[in-house]
Amino acid sequence: MTKTWDVLEEIQPTVLRMFKNTIIKDRLAHAYLFEGMRGTGKKDVAILIAKSLFCESPIDGYKPCEGCINCKRINNRNHPDIHFLEPDGLSIKKQQVKQLQEEFAKAGVESKQKVYTIVHADKMTTNAANSLLKFLEEPSSQTLAILITEQTQQILPTILSRCQIISFQPLSPKNLIEKLVEKGVDRNSAPLIAQLTNNLDEGLELSSDDWFAQAQKIVVKLYEVLKKNSLESLVTLQEDWFLHFKEKDQLDRGLDLLLLIFKDLLYIQLGKIEQVVYLNEKQRLEQFALQTSGRRLSDQMTAILDAKRKLHANMNPQLLMEQLVLKLQEGSTFV
């Protein structure tokens, strides 16, 4: 869904304020690098800037009207002077940039202005990045380039030095919660989702994902049996956990969900009830919080973070979880 200036201004106020002033004063740079986490509105702002430049009736001299033919064509990705370049497979190849350069050489089809957006600019091959340098070194006054990345460190320093870098801040959990609720997500579920992603679209997907709903139940069940005996916990791993959390990314998400339970218990002990995210389990968690200590909770959270680290180091998932369960029951950390 296309996002308007007003919507994006709520998400990235600093970025939009800067572009408002720049557009009004006609001082746009020839090349920008938009960097920040996934879901922070980078591509949406790139489209917005293009509309600001091509809109036939901009509001207050900078805000796209969203109703003229140019705004509609840009929203539909079919304006001849607006070009998007995205990875072909795993990378952006030299041939793609070469084709883009051929477009650079042409005059604008309908105006003198041309705008190019390179999505996942960090995925340019070295040859592709070197090919792009010529354009960045000899910019046309009528050409605007916007590079988008989540991995600034993967981009050649020579390209970085020729772009004005614009940093996009992560969506705050509070902001995301309100956006999720506006979209129909249950208010009791939204805080938990907002701890797992900064991305509204991903949050909406999680809210309607049966696998994710079941994952929460299994994680809560595992926590409950941890307070009993190790045998029952290991049985729960075999009968529930391993059948549900099969892939590495699924197991990582399961560990995140487990970590949030221990965080909630700590928040309850500290009297920070407003920061609890497992709202559907709040009453039971308040009872559980009476049965443990802050020191033990801290040790248990450290153990889960260690497990996440070992997961990414490719430790055997079954062995990892069995070790973790035993450590959580001891209340101590991994050796």
Rank of each mutant, 00 (worst) to 15 (best):
T4L: 03
L16H: 09
R17C: 01
K20N: 05
I23G: 03
L28Q: 02
K42W: 11
K43A: 14
A46G: 11
I49A: 11
I49R: 11
S52M: 03
F54S: 03
F54D: 05
D60T: 04
G61I: 05
Y62C: 00
Y62Q: 02
R73I: 01
N76C: 00
R77Y: 14
H83P: 00
L90Y: 11
S91D: 08
K98G: 01
Q101D: 08
A105K: 15
V115M: 06
T117G: 11
T117A: 15
I118W: 13
V119G: 03
H120Y: 15
A121G: 13
K123W: 00
N130V: 10
S131L: 08
S131V: 03
L132H: 11
L133E: 05
F135M: 11
E138Y: 10
S140W: 03
T143R: 02
I148G: 13
P157L: 03
T158A: 03
I159A: 04
I159M: 04
S161Q: 02
S161R: 05
S161A: 09
C163R: 00
I165M: 06
S172H: 05
P173L: 01
L176Q: 10
L176P: 10
E178V: 06
K179I: 02
V181C: 08
E182V: 09
K183M: 07
D186M: 03
A194V: 01
Q195T: 13
Q195R: 15
N199G: 05
N199P: 02
D201C: 00
E202A: 11
E205N: 12
F212W: 14
F212V: 07
A213S: 14
A213W: 03
V225H: 07
K227H: 12
K227W: 09
K228C: 00
E232D: 13
E232Y: 09
S233R: 01
L234C: 05
E239C: 03
D240V: 00
L243T: 11
Q250T: 08
Q250D: 12
L255K: 05
L255I: 06
L257K: 05
L257D: 03
L260G: 07
L260P: 06
I261A: 06
F262R: 07
L265R: 05
Q269I: 12
V276W: 04
Y278S: 06
L279Y: 04
L279H: 02
Q283S: 15
L285W: 14
L290Q: 15
G294F: 12
G294T: 15
R296T: 14
L297K: 13
M301P: 09
T302V: 13
T302C: 09
D306W: 01
K310Q: 03
H312I: 01
N314K: 01
E330V: 00
